[in-house]
């Protein structure tokens, strides 16, 4: 659709309103969300890396933005920043290879900020946040090399991943790192499951930063997303029921409903 259809003009703003309203609600009302399994392991992973005296390698994935900076990558960065902040207490070194040149200044700022907030600005080292290249496989080659050379104690992989996921994760596995991954790229999840200790699936990824930061905006947004998803689910169930009954009755109502949506 080059432009919105009438139904889209109603539904998308409706979903958006749910999200925005809940964000506003969250500012004054406390919201709880359910536990997300893999995320509780982050502390454990940081601890292991600290114990072994090895650095952590954190990647925010490939941002092959259609225009500008990819939103998934930003979301990943906010999770990684939380990890960096937690690791600052133990002065564990964190290395962040960056894929998208546009993300480089953003990442540097975010990490510097994280160290400042923990009162350890001395830990910030420009060389730890390195741009590698904007090519998928030379990025993978370089990250794999980095993991081997630094003997990573823990690797955190959040964001968008494609085929390079296995190269990075298997390298981490071979050096014996404890690994946590989370990606909205469904196609890569099986490979993370095979190689990582903890995997965050599907839109748990979006819930992750809310769960970690306990930030009202993120929590509210999550509730809004739940409502929107609930609406979507109801639409699908009702649609399915309507089609079933109309076809059982032999009427063409079902087709009308389908036409409405296209």
């Amino acid at each position: 659709m080059e432009h919105a259809s009438p139904l889209v003009r109603i539904m998308v703003p409706l979903f958006s309103t749910c999200i925005v309203v809940m964000i506003q609600t969250a500012r004054w009302k406390q919201i709880k969300i359910r536990r997300i399994h893999g995320l509780t392991a982050i502390e454990e992973a940081i601890g292991r890396a600290t114990e072994m005296g090895r650095p952590m390698v954190c990647t925010t994935g490939l941002g092959t933005a259609r225009a500008g900076i990819e939103i998934v990558t930003l979301q990943a960065l906010s999770i990684i920043t939380y990890i960096v902040r937690s690791s600052a207490k133990f002065a564990t070194k964190a290395v962040l290879p960056v894929f998208d040149p546009q993300m480089l200044p953003v990442t540097q700022e975010a990490v510097r900020e994280a160290y400042n907030l923990e009162g350890r600005p001395d830990l910030y080292n420009t060389e730890d946040i390195r741009f590698l290249t904007n090519n998928q496989f030379s990025y993978a080659a370089a990250v794999a090399g980095l993991i081997w050379r630094e003997k990573a104690g823990a690797t955190f992989m959040f964001g968008n991943y494609y085929a390079e996921s296995l190269i990075i994760a298997e390298s981490g596995n071979q050096v014996g790192a404890i690994q946590i991954a989370g990606t909205p790229a469904t196609m890569q999840i099986p490979f993370f499951i095979a190689t990582c200790d903890y995997v965050i699936i599907g839109d748990e990824f979006y819930a992750a930063s809310a769960y970690l930061s306990k930030e009202p905006t993120a929590l509210g947004s999550l509730v809004g997303q739940d409502i929107a998803k609930g609406l979507l689910l109801i639409i699908v169930i009702l649609g399915s029921a309507a089609i079933t009954f109309s076809q059982m009755a032999g009427s063409s109502l079902g087709k009308t409903i389908l036409d409405l949506f296209s």
């Binding site: 998308v12 979903f15 958006s16 999200i19 925005v20 939103i71 998934v72 930003l74 979301q75 909205p184 469904t186 599907g202 839109d203 990824f205 979006y206 947004s221 809004g224 997303q225 929107a228 998803k229 979507l232």
Partner: peptide
């Protein structure tokens, strides 16, 4: 879920 998540972050 991811679609709605994307929409939310974009918003």
């Amino acid at each position: 879920g991811i679609g709605i998540g994307n929409l939310a972050v974009a918003l």
